[in-house]
């Protein structure tokens, strides 16, 4: 039954993640931490980090990882299959419609209003990710004594670098990791 639950949870993620990779983020977070408690916020942060520095869509990476953690390789297969099933169905239906009604103005109309909502949900996820990165994941106290100043510095420097120089994000993430090893481990 756990395989079915995995399949269904990631089916929901696949079905409702409109608008590219990050759109899946809030949905994964809700399914995996909120609805099912398969991961802690700390583990979610780790898998997010891993999937950002490896190739492949976040949703596929997350479904593979969560599947393995919950039920081994069969779990990973079930979760990944769930994640791509809605795509298979909807994309082929849209392709058939598209050839008949070029442009799909209704779909465009829906997406036009859906998009700001998706951006808002990603921003909301980002807020919890940022809180976890800066305050640690133990309890979300938000008291200044829990603030990790090194992480704040890395975040500020990373954001500045991204906005100013627009490098490939992988360099910012790996760079922050290397500095992290120097600051925290040595």
């Amino acid at each position: 039954m756990i395989l079915l639950r995995l399949y269904w949870s990631f089916f929901i993620v696949g079905l409702f993640s409109f608008g590219g990779g990050y759109a899946a983020l809030p949905l994964i977070q809700e399914q995996v931490i909120g609805v099912n408690s398969w991961l802690t916020q700390a583990e979610f942060m780790d898998i997010l980090t891993i999937s950002q520095v490896t190739p492949g869509p976040i949703a596929i990476n997350a479904s593979t990882f969560v599947g393995i953690k919950v039920a081994g390789i069969p779990g990973a297969v079930a979760a990944t299959a769930g994640c791509i099933t809605p795509s298979c169905i909807i994309v082929l239906i849209l392709a058939a419609l598209y050839n008949r009604f070029k442009g799909l103005s209704l779909v465009h109309g829906i997406i036009k209003v859906l998009r700001p909502a998706v951006v808002a949900l990603i921003a909301s996820s980002d807020l919890s990710i940022l809180a976890a990165a800066l305050f640690g994941t133990a309890g979300f106290s938000f008291s200044l004594s829990d603030l990790d100043f090194a992480a704040l510095g890395l975040f500020a420097a990373g954001l500045f670098t991204m906005r100013k120089f627009r490098p490939d994000p992988i360099f910012v993430m790996l760079g922050a990791g290397i500095i992290g090893v120097i600051v925290y481990a040595i």
Binding site: Y22, L25, M45, D46, L48, T49, Q52, V53, R115, P116, V119, I122, A123, S125, D126, I129, L130, A132, A133, L134, D148, A150, A151, L152, L154, F155, A156, A157, G158, L159, T161, M162, R163, P169, V172, M173, L174, G175, A176, G177, I178, I179, G180, V181, V183, Y184, A185
Partner: peptide, 30 residues
């Protein structure tokens, strides 16, 4: 492992920066 944790802590700050950058760009476009 402590070194792994340190690596992840650093990378998480970087990931937060990258996603925040993405969110700023998206919101600005809206």
């Amino acid at each position: 492992d402590p070194t792994t944790r340190a690596l992840f802590r650093g990378m998480q700050a970087g990931v937060a920066a990258v996603i925040t950058d993405v969110v700023i760009g998206m919101a600005a476009r809206i």
